[in-house]
Design a binder for these strands. Structure first.
Lengths: 112, 112
DNA sequence: CAGAATCCGAGACGATACTG
DNA sequence: CAGTATCGTCTCGGATTCTG
């Protein structure tokens, strides 16, 4: 995964478009990380995701479109009937695993 | 920093209150990570933060209150005149450095 | 100096209804 | 099956004004 030597602190000017913002923008939305988490277990169809996540169609479709646009998820139609669509993580999406682990790590400590 | 062996994938049920959500909730808001980034360089007064971040008073005050509530930032009045308030990261706040580095890492790769 | 109060607009969520 | 359309609600952000 390239070089890990660059630190968040080593950049001169904090702008709203810095890499940290890019990542948070990709993960934006209450259900986004849960969708990614599902797909880390392998490709899923739309209905499988809908069944696993108890989320409305609108929100699920919105988040999937967002993830596709960010290059995290790839969408593909499955031949045959009934029509199905499969969603899978791209290599870039797979790379989110480390990010989610870091978020999990910090959030699992007590706040007291 | 405790054990890093737990993975985001190893948990049974994804809930809106899982640790990942805790972290994203703490970092919620466009300016939050930039405030944390400033404080990673050491304690800052309110006006120092305001000068460095070109953000409105309302938003800055909102984000600081949020970070204090999450246990990330500690607020302390400075004696003397004019009245000043100093903000500094708690140990829990310092621990965000690794999280921000992970977010930076992922976001700095091209999407193409 | 360090904010609080108020008002407005944008975006995300949620439920419901409808369609290729 | 896999969405889109619509509507109401809520939170965040930005600007302005005011105060201990």
């Amino acid at each position: 995964m390239a070089n890990q030597t660059v630190s968040y602190l080593e950049v001169d000017r904090p702008t709203p478009e810095c890499p940290v913002e890019v990542t948070l923008h990709a993960l934006r939305g209450r259900w986004t990380t849960l969708v990614v988490r599902e797909l880390l277990g392998g490709a899923r169809t739309y209905s499988e995701l809908a069944g696993a996540l108890a989320v409305s169609d609108k929100v699920l479709a919105d988040r999937l479109a967002q993830l596709v646009e960010c290059g995290v998820v790839e969408r593909s139609r499955v031949a045959g009937w009934p029509p199905r669509v499969s969603y899978a993580l791209t290599p870039r999406g797979q790379a989110l695993r480390g990010v989610l682990d870091a978020l999990w790590e910090w959030g699992s400590h007590d706040c007291s």
